[in-house]
Each structure stands twice: as C-alpha cells, then as structure tokens.
Design a binder for these strands. Structure first.
Lengths: 158, 158
DNA sequence: TTTTTTTGCTTTAAGCCTAAATTATAGGAG
DNA sequence: CTCCTATAATTTAGGCTTAAAGCAAAAAAA
C-alpha cells in the first residue's frame, strides 16, 4: 500500500494511470503521429504546410470569402497567426484580399480560381493519406471512434 | 447526381464526409482544444509550457537519466528540439546534464531534486485540469475511447 | 595506425503559434 | 461635433517545431 522506504523508483503520482489521463495521452499521441505524417507529405509532395491547407479548406466552403477574424475563429488559432499564413497564400496567388466595402478596418479574403483548383488537388491527396493512415482500422471501430470523439468535442466545445 | 451548371456552392469533393476524414478532423480538433487549455493553464499558473512538462514527465520515470536521443525519441520530437527545452529547464535548475562516462559525444540528463519536486506539483495540477476537461464524459464512454484510441495508436505506431 | 564512416548533439533557417502592444476605423455618449 | 470605447487587423517578442548543415567523438575499415 505505502511506498517502500528503500524504493528507488519514482514515487507513484496521485491519479497516474486513470482513464482520463490515458485518454488524453492517447488522443495527443494519435494526433501527433498523424500530423507528423501529413506535414511531411504536404512538404514533400506539394511544398506547402498543414496550416495553409487548413486555411484553404475553410475558405473553400465560403466562396464569397470571409473576414480574417472569422477565419481565425473557425481555425481555433490566434488572430495574428492568420495574418502571416494568409500573406503566404496571397503571395502564391492562391488567395485574394479585398477591402470590406462598409468597414474600412476589415478585409474579405477568399480563394482565387487558382486557389480553388489547387485546393481540390490538395484535398484529394489529403484524403488519400488519411485513408492510408486508417486503412487497418475496422469500419465499426472507426464509427465508434467518430461517434465518441463527436460527443467529446461537443462537451469540450461547451 | 451531377453538379448543377448554375450551382454557386463549392463542388463536392471526392471523399468529403467519409468516416476516416471525420475521425481525423475530430481527433485533431479535440487534441487542439485540450492543448489550448493546458498551454494557457501551464503559462498562467506555473509560468511554464506543455513541452517542458512533457520532458519532465519522461525524465521523472527515469531517475537515472537518459540521453538526449532517447528523450527525443520518447517524445516524438526532433533531436534539435530537445536541445533548447533542456537548456531552459537546466537554467531553472530543474534538470542536470552530466557527460557520459564512456561516450564523449553523449550526455545523460536527469531531473534535479528540485525538478522532481516541481514535477510532482505540476503533474497534480495537470491531472486536475484533465479531469475537469473530461468531467462530463461518462465513464463507459471514456473507457471505450481509451480502448479505441489504444488500438488506433498501435496501428499507427506499426 | 590512419582513414573513413557513423553517431550524438547543436546550430541554423524557416515556419507556426500565442499574448500583448499598436494602429486605424467604427460607433456611441455627451 | 468631440471624446471615448470597441473592434479588425497587424506587429512584436518569445517559444515550439522541423529539416538540414555542421561539429566532434566513436567505431569501423583499410
């Protein structure tokens, strides 16, 4: 029950090995492994990054464009962060920024035609990579995880 | 079946909304939300970071210390990355680096007594935050996710 | 022994990320 | 109209991250 007085091992931490902690560690671990793979693929095959892909993915769903603020909220990243990523995409001609007609502070960013075309290509590759990653996961297990993580996300979002 | 010629909405992407993609998006989303919360807490309450905590967590389990290489492999981060984090912890007196007796290239890093004491405090807070995050998740759902993510991690690791 | 290759780690360049400070515009109170 | 506050975005400082290049020691080869 108690730690031995001559124990040279680390003292047991309160709560170590609980289900919550295990869940968190595994969640983070799986996400990290996947991200590592995607980052490498995006870099090697398209000379781009996951964050840029994320920006394009959000904008693809909004053909009329959106403000920098909405973009950063949709991506769960800080306001200032979006600025530099948008700049990169703009420099590549994949994205355009147009001053808001009513509000002089704001700008509406949207994908260019080239950006939309490029995103379709990227999204296809992205999906193929994800499929490959989860290839060995049984379909019912997949559904179970989707369900469980959906519930988790709802709880976390609230 | 086909896209309308006058459709102003984004064309449907092949594979959009499949279970694999949904799983990946939710996995990443949940991890991101949790990380954001932990980062803020570590910063505000202990003026430290999640990566530093991660290093300490690994070293806590290895009282005899380990090489920089083992450390980076255990954390799934690049070799060069560990260098700067270790330096920070060393500057705070939480970690010590001792030259390897046989191998002049290598060093053995380990937590100092102060580092071990500090880690116990951090780990306790960390666990409390995690518990709070998952407070509303039913115990059986928790177990199911732990199980599913464990399997997923095994598949991803191989 | 001398040379070559490998290995452990650090450094560098580039990008992502945040919080906080700054700038500029918008909108309301007086 | 003027002042004050709120909001949109950028800039700045600091930290994390990687890949690639560099350095020094070890190990292997010649």
């Amino acid at each position: 029950m108690n730690e031995s007085l001559t124990d040279t091992n680390p003292p047991t931490l309160a709560g170590a090995g609980t289900d919550e902690l295990r869940l968190w560690v595994r969640l983070l671990r799986c996400a990290k492994v996947g991200e590592k793979l995607l980052r490498r693929n995006f870099e090697e095959q398209f000379d781009t990054t996951l964050p840029r892909f994320d920006v394009m993915a959000v904008l693809y769903r909004e053909p009329d464009g959106m403000s920098m603020g909405s973009l950063s909220r949709a991506l769960l990243v800080s306001n200032g962060n979006v600025t530099s990523i948008v700049r990169q995409l703009q420099a590549q001609g994949l994205l355009q920024s147009i001053p808001h007609p009513q509000d002089g502070r704001s700008a509406i960013v949207s994908l260019t035609l080239a950006g939309r075309a490029q995103f379709v290509v990227l999204a296809e590759a992205h999906h193929a990579w994800i499929s490959e990653i989860f290839r060995e996961v049984p379909a019912d297990r997949l559904k179970q995880l989707v369900e469980g993580l959906g519930e988790l996300h709802t709880i976390l979002g609230a």
